[in-house]
Simulated scan of single mutants.
Amino acid sequence: MASNKEDMKLFGMLISPYVIRVEIALKLKGIEYKYIEEKPGNLSEKAIQYNPIYKKVPILVHNEKHISESLVILEYIDETWKQNPILPSDPYKKALARFWSKFIDDKVMYAARKAFFYHDEKELEQGIEETTVALQLLENELKDKFFGGEEIGIVDISAVILAYWLPIIQEAFGVKLFTSDKFPKLYNWSQDFNNHPIVKELLPPRETLKTNYKGLYERHVASK
């Protein structure tokens, strides 16, 4: 098992929920790593060298083998270190976990971006409607305390962007998508997830994120 900080590096950014996904998985597994902070819009030469195709974080470097894209990294971590699994062992349940993890990025957050960065009222309404439908599907899928059952798994980790980031972003942009009255099960899940000891330790300060997204909102309004 590689637990030495010399063996493991994570290139990330404080404001990125995709980086936090990887950190949660590493902490759950008890894997030590060296964290290297990158600047938004100004990645280091080393980071670009490790991820020349997408040129973004997170990037995990394990014994000089570099892996990018958060969901790919999560699977790599789970397959490399068997303790505290985040993916089910059953092939069908594993396939479902992969499906819902990808659904969060491809459907929920894609729709939410349309609602936040809309160009006109029609696009705003469409974004809100699509996000509501996607969140309702997740609400219906949640059967236990966590998507992973009594312990957090890959779907929960993937959904950190919903649990912590989305409420802050919607407050900054003044667009309500995720509320406790509309999605009570998801809301309770988000509270339990955000207060999980490992997750809570890693989440960036709320005010830091709020300031960042308020700046994004102001630039978006100015550009319209």
Rank of each mutant, 00 (worst) to 15 (best):
S180P: 06
I59R: 00
Q170F: 01
I168Y: 05
K107C: 00
L142I: 07
K200N: 11
E79T: 08
K185A: 02
H119D: 15
D181T: 12
K214E: 15
V133N: 14
S68Y: 04
E150T: 14
E75D: 03
T211A: 11
P197I: 03
A222L: 13
V19G: 12
L162C: 09
A134Y: 09
N212D: 10
E38K: 10
L203H: 02
E171T: 13
A172T: 07
F11S: 02
I15N: 13
E207H: 01
A95H: 07
L96S: 08
A47H: 01
N188A: 11
D105M: 11
A134G: 08
F193G: 00
I154S: 05
V160L: 01
Y33G: 14
I73V: 06
D7S: 02
K94Q: 04
L138N: 15
I77Q: 01
I53K: 04
L216T: 08
E150R: 04
K29R: 12
F116G: 04
E121K: 07
D192H: 14
E23S: 15
L10N: 00
P40L: 13
A95Y: 01
L43K: 09
V57Q: 04
E79M: 07
N195L: 05
K214G: 15
K55F: 00
I59F: 00
G30T: 09
A25C: 11
L43C: 12
D144G: 13
E141P: 10
D106S: 10
S70R: 00
K214D: 12
K46R: 13
D105E: 14
H119K: 15
D90I: 04
I20V: 15
P91G: 09
A163H: 00
L43N: 07
R219P: 12
P58F: 02
L142C: 04
T211P: 05
N188G: 13
T179N: 02
L138F: 09
F147Q: 06
D144F: 14
D181F: 10
A2N: 11
E23M: 15
I161A: 10
S89H: 15
P205D: 03
E125D: 14
N140H: 10
L137P: 15
T211G: 06
P205S: 01
D120Y: 04
D78L: 06
P205E: 02
Q83K: 08
Q170M: 07
M8F: 02
K200Q: 10
I86V: 06
A95P: 03
Y187W: 14
P40G: 11
E38P: 05
I128Y: 14
P85Q: 03
P17H: 07
A134I: 11
